[in-house]
Design a protein around this nucleic acid. Sequence first.
DNA 1: AATGAATGAGGCTTCATTCAT
DNA 2: CATGAATGAAGCCTCATTCAT
Lengths: 216, 216, 216, 216
Amino acid sequence: MHSNTSKSKPLSRRERESARHRQEMLEAAQSVFSEHGFEKARMEDIAQRAEFAVGTLYRFFASKDQLYLELLRDKADVMEERLDEAINAGKTPLEKVRNIFFTRLDLFWDHKAFFRLMVQETEGSLHKPRLCGDENLAARYERFLEQLEAIFEAGIRAGEFRALPPHCLFAAFEGVLRNYVARLGYLDPDAPRDPAEEEAMFELFSHGACLAPKSQ
Amino acid sequence: MHSNTSKSKPLSRRERESARHRQEMLEAAQSVFSEHGFEKARMEDIAQRAEFAVGTLYRFFASKDQLYLELLRDKADVMEERLDEAINAGKTPLEKVRNIFFTRLDLFWDHKAFFRLMVQETEGSLHKPRLCGDENLAARYERFLEQLEAIFEAGIRAGEFRALPPHCLFAAFEGVLRNYVARLGYLDPDAPRDPAEEEAMFELFSHGACLAPKSQ
Amino acid sequence: MHSNTSKSKPLSRRERESARHRQEMLEAAQSVFSEHGFEKARMEDIAQRAEFAVGTLYRFFASKDQLYLELLRDKADVMEERLDEAINAGKTPLEKVRNIFFTRLDLFWDHKAFFRLMVQETEGSLHKPRLCGDENLAARYERFLEQLEAIFEAGIRAGEFRALPPHCLFAAFEGVLRNYVARLGYLDPDAPRDPAEEEAMFELFSHGACLAPKSQ
Amino acid sequence: MHSNTSKSKPLSRRERESARHRQEMLEAAQSVFSEHGFEKARMEDIAQRAEFAVGTLYRFFASKDQLYLELLRDKADVMEERLDEAINAGKTPLEKVRNIFFTRLDLFWDHKAFFRLMVQETEGSLHKPRLCGDENLAARYERFLEQLEAIFEAGIRAGEFRALPPHCLFAAFEGVLRNYVARLGYLDPDAPRDPAEEEAMFELFSHGACLAPKSQ
DNA sequence: AATGAATGAGGCTTCATTCAT
DNA sequence: CATGAATGAAGCCTCATTCAT
């Protein structure tokens, strides 16, 4: 699942254990961060939930900030990969957009705790000071935005999307998607996934809330 | 104690001064909260910006949490009033929705700092633990949601909106609106208001991103 | 006694209290630092000895390092002044040197705790990393060294001192003085001052340990 | 237990390796201690510099304090031996003192890192709390002091030294020597040894800084 | 009402020491 | 013997809150 980036070297038992412990800590961190938010999360709680001592956390992460950052980075890796696949799988721009929409919903259901965290702390975007500090993460997100914008532009040229400013299309897309996800995160955390509802949300993005279509 | 909403009694000079001081403190709090977020904002900074001593803050607000809450409540008062007007001003459900959309944009431009704060700390909704504690605020928000839902339902019955679950309509509406506002808050805080863009956003909500409308 | 540098403004009661508290804290810090050394001294101990809470220390000093530094600076002010007087009071270079010698002994007896601290932490010189960081202090010490060297040079030209490298004269002078002081700090901290002994030490510096003088 | 001074038994390879490892650790400890001082030196740094794991350090030394102590003891052994030789090599008290003086300079040049450590942490004497705890070391130093005192007394009786309190002679001797060494440790750590300067320093101790000798 | 110095609980972080492999 | 991951006590520092003036 979590293939270590790429170069597969035969890891020693020690190294494998170490990697596992790191994962456990990230898991615990995610859980605590998403419960209380970054500021209120206590390193001791994270340690406890990971079933390690506080000091051990610091063997893996230099500081609370770093821990948070690495958590985001790790998750971002996963997401990026799946989103790239989703984009490539679509033929037309509309298909690509549709794939992105549903892949992000998939990701939400697979990483609920993480999304709650994202929503809480980042309000979905990466424009928070804590995160802007990280070149890597910011650049990566920028890249994603540009990709999306390019897709929308292509879609406009192809006559699939209306001739509105791409960043507006993008804003609407993100808004519909994020707000839906955010709501899912709150209201009844145990509610099951509802494909019809998801389809409705995409419909709302693609064809709007009104019946009588305005020609343009 | 601090009645300042409607019942008009002739306020003494003392009372008027007191009310003014309270306003100055709330203003300062908003400014500091929106700059650093709730956790990192320091009471001393707020006091300094309000040009009062820390102790004085505590004469008006029992705690940092309370200060935050009252700030939200005060602003909520203003917003509620203007939104109620907007709703009443619209004849049809669609008109009402349209009015709400643009009134909220008006409010955003009139209360930018507050919106930044809302976006930062509340991710736009009021589902944060800190706020859920407050009966008043939560109830008020609930009431607004119900109103909106009722409008959407009416719109569906009237054939103005598509027959999708009202909460989906609502989610799309909120998403498009909030995400647009959130973006405005980040990217270039000095950029001027752009009516065309706003119209585009509403168009996207009402008629979607795609050219070829699906009949339903 | 502790005239606030120079410009005398009428201090308010608040300000006078504040200054007094600062002094108390410095006093306590000196005491604790000189007992345990910088590293082992705990801010809590200092606070306790000053009869304040820890937090209060930090209203006056930004950090443990700063506290230490300001302590040194404050004392250095006093010493500098008295040494300058001593130097100016001497007519010939030898007299100046003699005055410095005994003034430093006076200072030792007036500020025993501080000297213990100096000896412990600084080995008498200011070449410790913690202190080299401070421009002010280092520069000030440098100035003193140059002054001394100039005096020795003058003394050599005047035929009062032997024609040895001034820095050697200086090293011998400092060595005899410091080591004597260091010893006093250890052995029986309650032993009274002994003028005869002090005279003997100066004699040893000026005319050496041997009876038969070598001509040079 | 760890007899390694004189009684020669044929050591097994194991024992020889062990002894070598111990030496490497002491070497590393000296290096790290002299760089950062005792408190700031970290066991992990020492281990790393010795190219062993932390745990291994603890097989050889019960604690950081012990490690420090044994380091001092080991070095003290060497110094003691050479100083004894120096003392015995001198015929007259003055010769003995002279030998001690220059032997200690030899030792300084042979064990610079150690002297830096001594100067930093011990201010040259052994009156530091950390060390006073050690009977052995303190007693040994005491013995050296007594020896020196006896030499000075003998010198006084022999008419080689002036009739001043022996502890004053001793204080001047130690002061001149130590301060010179301390200076060498700071100023330009790469400066070469300067015999003329050394001779000047001894001259200063023996015949003083002033030209005109006071008869006594 | 206003002030702001004082308080002290609580969080982050470090590092000597242990122990299972 | 060697290893180095794990431990957790302890120190520095922050800041919401109080209270005497």
